[in-house]
Amino acid sequence: MNNPIRWAIWATGAIADKFAADLPLVADAELLAIGSRSMANANAFGDRHGIPRRYAGLPDLLSDGDIDVVYIASPASAHCGDALTVIAAGRHVLVEKPFTLTLADAHRVVAAAGEGGVFLMEAMWSRFLPYFDMLADLLGQGVIGDIRYLEADFGMRFPADNRLFTASTGGGALFDLGVYPLQLAHAVLGVPTSLLASGLIGPTGVDLTTQIALRYPQASASLQTSLTVPLRNEARLVGADREIVLPKFLHCPDEIVIGHRDMSGGDLVVDERLPANQQGNGLHYEVAAVHSCIRAGSVEHPLMPWAATLEVMAMLDQTAGQIGLHVG
């Protein structure tokens, strides 16, 4: 067996807990260290997950020469600066989504990784789940023919004290939830020829609800996200006669549904249900992908290459500009 790849986690929020819980599912992964701005938080997190080394502050964490790769789970507003710091220390890095809050910052991080020769990937974990491989295979087989229309939404009603209502840390529906419908549209349809967005900015300066219309040469997409309205949290990929449905939740569904409707719409007539079960929280699949690249000496992964991150960031950037969302 190969020597383990030694991980550190930077920040101790909810997504970091899920990541730490899933890491043991990857045989050659070792969770060596946890870092936080608060030593108390680092110790509490380390105790929960049995992590031997704990550090207060990112520079102290990076002073540990045994760390191979850092998972950045800090607030979105800190992603750019934290990623640049990790890259400057010569470590590989997995950055939680959204990659950054602006396209300009995303270019800075990608350029730094290219110059430093380290592995870098946005933690768009959905692209590494079992359902995503199945979806790609179904589309490749032409099960529904060419996609003519894509509809996807992701929204919930969050309490007013939720972190997503805090503008200073990169909150809002678009960057936390809306990135999932956007990345799905990008994955299956590519870069749109046009994007038209509208949104409602709340009193704290974050977008509460955002709608995005995408146009492609032979298709269109309608996307929606919200912090205040419970949506269906599903996706439909519609072909000439049949469609694929990704049920709740669209970014990590337990099954893929193939079906059809009559010419006037109506309820979906199900032709087939394909189980798409995942282990754990689903975050270890991206870890295995990171390992394969590090061991091969690759600096990016073909399922989530730097170009894909930059293209999705460009769509986020354009949407934010159109709805008057001020970030960064």
Rank of each mutant, 00 (worst) to 15 (best):
Y216C: 10
E151H: 11
P230R: 06
E243G: 05
D47E: 12
A112Q: 05
A21I: 09
R127N: 01
D28I: 04
A21E: 14
P98Y: 04
G81Q: 06
S126R: 11
G259D: 07
P159H: 00
N281I: 03
F154G: 01
V238N: 08
V245L: 14
R127Y: 09
V93S: 00
N277W: 04
G145T: 07
R215K: 13
A44I: 07
L200V: 09
A160T: 01
L223P: 06
A21S: 13
G81S: 14
L84A: 12
A21D: 14
G297V: 08
A185G: 04
H291P: 07
R91G: 05
V93M: 05
N2V: 11
Q318S: 07
R108G: 02
L58E: 09
M315A: 13
A33M: 14
I201R: 04
L310G: 02
P75I: 12
D47P: 03
L208C: 02
P230V: 02
N281A: 07
R295T: 12
A33E: 15
W10I: 08
M39S: 13
F158R: 01
A78P: 01
A16F: 01
E122A: 14
W306E: 12
I144P: 03
D133W: 05
L283T: 05
G142C: 03
D161E: 02
L283H: 02
A88S: 10
P4I: 12
M315H: 07
A152S: 12
R54W: 02
L120H: 06
T204A: 09
S222F: 08
C80N: 14
V110P: 04
L174H: 00
D47W: 07
G178W: 06
I212V: 15
R53E: 10
E151T: 11
A160N: 01
I67P: 00
P4S: 05
M39N: 06
Q279W: 08
A307V: 08
E311D: 15
F154L: 11
L227N: 00
I244Q: 00
A106S: 07
L182T: 02
R163G: 00
G265C: 04
T210H: 02
Q183M: 11
A33F: 14
F158C: 02
I87D: 11
E272S: 07
A16Y: 00
S38M: 08
G172N: 02
V110L: 08
P275F: 15
V86N: 01
G117S: 08
V69H: 02
K18M: 12
A76C: 04
W306S: 10
M304K: 09
L223K: 04
M121S: 13
I201V: 03
D28M: 03
A20N: 05
G172E: 00
G57V: 06
F158W: 12
M315L: 15
D267M: 14
R37C: 06
V287N: 01
A187L: 01
N43P: 03
L195I: 07
E255I: 01
A152T: 04
I258S: 04
A104Y: 13
H79C: 15
Y285N: 00
S77E: 13
D153W: 01
G205L: 10
